[in-house]
Simulated scan of single mutants.
Amino acid sequence: MLRALAHRGRRAGAAVVPAVVPDTIAQRVAACIACHGREGATTNAGYFPRLAGKPAGYLFNQLVSFRDGRRSNSDMAYMVQHMSDAYLHEIADYFAGLDLPYPPISPLSDARPEVLERGRMLALEGDRERRLPACVQCHGAALTGVLPATPGLLGLPRLYLASQLGAWLTNDRHAMAPDCMAEVGRRMWSSDVNAVASWLATQPMPANTRPAASLPAPMPIACGGISK
């Protein structure tokens, strides 16, 4: 008994070797996991958007917009307020390079069939009378985004989609000039936001979830930040 206590005491007095945390970009962006999910992949029931596989140019533009005040989120602004463009590029490149499976997407929705049909029409055909381009004209035929800086719209929670589209409509979100989504938002009604968000949130992911390399035709509206 006494020998055991003495041995324990010697161990307690031994020098403690501090744990070594690897200085990698994966370790440094670990804080992002708290909100965006493990390695940047969220479930389709949450609010926060998936980061994995998004175009690096888009991710960089959003980080800069949070830092410079074009987008408003106190947590994001606090995290990036002192970060340089070079570091934001490093973060964007890291998440863009992740290739992770998407969570299962439920095809069920509590939206009425006519609302889902309106959302489908806006996403795939647009509304000529109101000069609303179809989502596919800018975000790609598969709606998985387009390089270098147009995001995908699939695999995102309906709440997140509706909140961001609504922010364009109410002029609470801004992007680099010319702000194409602000222009689109001015042409939308709140019912359009609900419809397209409801439809997009129920669409399955295609076999190839990566952003398209390019669009088959010019974008229907001038959009800033695309060449960044």
Rank of each mutant, 00 (worst) to 15 (best):
L122R: 00
A149M: 10
P49L: 13
V64S: 03
M83N: 11
G145N: 05
H36L: 11
D75V: 14
A134S: 13
V196E: 04
M1F: 10
A41E: 07
W168C: 00
L215I: 10
Y160Q: 11
A56M: 07
G225Q: 03
F60T: 01
C32A: 13
Y94F: 15
A56C: 06
A41L: 10
A175D: 15
P178H: 08
L5N: 06
P206C: 08
E129A: 13
P148W: 02
A26L: 08
A123Q: 07
S106I: 10
T43N: 11
M176W: 09
T202Q: 09
D192R: 02
S214V: 09
K228D: 11
V115N: 01
A86P: 02
P55M: 04
S214D: 12
M188L: 15
M1Q: 09
R187K: 15
V29W: 06
A177N: 07
L153R: 07
P178Q: 10
P104G: 09
I25W: 02
L5T: 13
A123R: 07
G155Y: 08
D127K: 05
M181N: 01
A4G: 12
A207V: 14
R8C: 12
E183D: 15
L59P: 00
P22F: 11
A212Y: 01
C138Q: 03
R70G: 07
C32F: 08
A6S: 10
R11E: 15
A31D: 12
A195G: 02
L147T: 03
P151S: 10
L122S: 04
R50P: 07
I25L: 13
Q27L: 11
R67K: 14
Y47W: 12
H139Q: 08
I25A: 06
E90Y: 03
A45C: 05
A212E: 14
W168P: 00
W189S: 15
E183S: 15
A86N: 07
A111N: 03
H36N: 05
Q81N: 10
G152R: 04
A41G: 08
G225S: 09
A197Y: 01
R70P: 03
P107E: 12
S190M: 13
G155Q: 06
M83R: 11
A31L: 12
G224Q: 04
I221D: 01
C35N: 10
A222M: 04
T24L: 12
E125T: 12
M205I: 13
A6T: 12
L200H: 06
A19W: 03
L161G: 09
L51R: 01
L156D: 02
P206A: 11
E114A: 12
A92H: 03
T150P: 00
R67V: 10
A142E: 12
D127N: 15
R173D: 00
I25Y: 03
S214Q: 11
P218T: 13
L116I: 09
D127G: 12
R118D: 11
C138D: 04
Y102T: 13
E39C: 00
D99N: 15
N171A: 14
P101I: 10
D172F: 00
R118T: 07
R3Y: 06
S198G: 09
D85A: 14
L169A: 02
K228H: 11
W189R: 14
T24M: 02
D85N: 15
S106M: 05
N44W: 02
T24C: 09
G46N: 06
A195C: 04
S214C: 04
